[in-house]
C-alpha cells in the first residue's frame, strides 16, 4: 500500500475511469481514454519537419518549451492525406513519459462509456483491420472506436525500417 504518493493519482484515476475524449478522423468517431490526454491545442501551429521519418510523423512542435512530436492519425491509419483547417486540433497524450501530439480533424466531447458497453473489435477475418483499435464502445445507437494509445505510439515500425538510407 504505497498510499503516500499514489493516493492523489488513484483518486484522479477513479474519477477518470470510463471517460473518453472523442474526436473525428475522416467520417469515423474515435475515443481515447481521458487519463492519457494532457492537453488539446486548437488549430495547427508551425510544425518543424523532420527528415527520414514515416510520413505520419509530421514533425515536432514547441509546447511551452517542451518539444513534442506530432503524428497525423489519419496517415497513421494509412488513409489519404487531408488538408488541415481551422477545426483541426492536436490532442497531446502522455503515455509512459512519452508525450505525443495527435493531429485529428475535430475534437467532439468527453463521454462516459461503461465497461459493459465496450466490446472487443471484430476479428480480422470479418474484414476489420485497424490494428490500433482496442475496443468498440456503444452509446445508444452510436459507435465509438476506442484507440489503443500504446500501439499507436509503438515505434517498432520506426525501428524495424531502415529510414537512414
Amino acid at each position: 500500500m504505497s498510499e503516500i504518493l499514489d493516493e492523489a493519482v488513484l483518486q484522479e484515476e477513479d474519477t477518470q475511469k470510463g471517460k473518453f475524449l472523442t474526436f473525428l478522423v475522416g467520417k469515423e468517431e474515435y475515443g481515447i481514454e481521458i487519463k492519457y490526454v494532457t492537453e488539446i491545442i486548437g488549430g495547427i501551429q508551425a510544425i518543424t519537419e523532420i527528415p527520414d521519418v514515416p510520413e505520419y510523423v509530421k514533425g515536432i512542435i514547441n509546447l511551452r518549451g517542451k518539444i513534442i512530436p506530432v503524428m497525423d492519425v489519419n496517415l497513421r491509419f494509412n488513409k489519404e492525406a487531408r488538408d488541415y483547417n481551422d477545426r483541426t486540433c492536436i490532442i497531446v497524450i502522455d503515455i509512459d513519459e512519452l508525450s505525443v501530439g495527435l493531429i485529428v480533424d475535430n475534437v467532439a466531447e468527453v463521454i462516459s462509456i461503461a465497461d459493459a458497453d465496450i466490446v472487443p473489435p471484430p476479428d480480422v477475418r470479418s474484414g476489420f483491420h485497424n490494428r490500433y483499435i482496442k475496443g468498440i464502445g456503444k452509446i445508444g445507437s452510436e459507435v465509438k472506436l476506442i484507440l489503443d494509445c500504446q500501439r499507436l505510439l509503438s515505434t517498432e515500425e520506426l525501428e524495424n525500417l531502415d529510414y537512414i538510407n
Partner: peptide
C-alpha cells in the same frame, strides 16, 4: 534539447532547439 524519444535517432541531426 534532445529530440523526443519517439522520434529516435535521425541521421544528420544531433538535437533540436527553439
Amino acid at each position: 534539447k534532445a529530440l523526443p524519444k519517439f522520434i529516435g535517432k535521425i541521421a544528420g541531426i544531433s538535437a533540436c532547439t527553439l
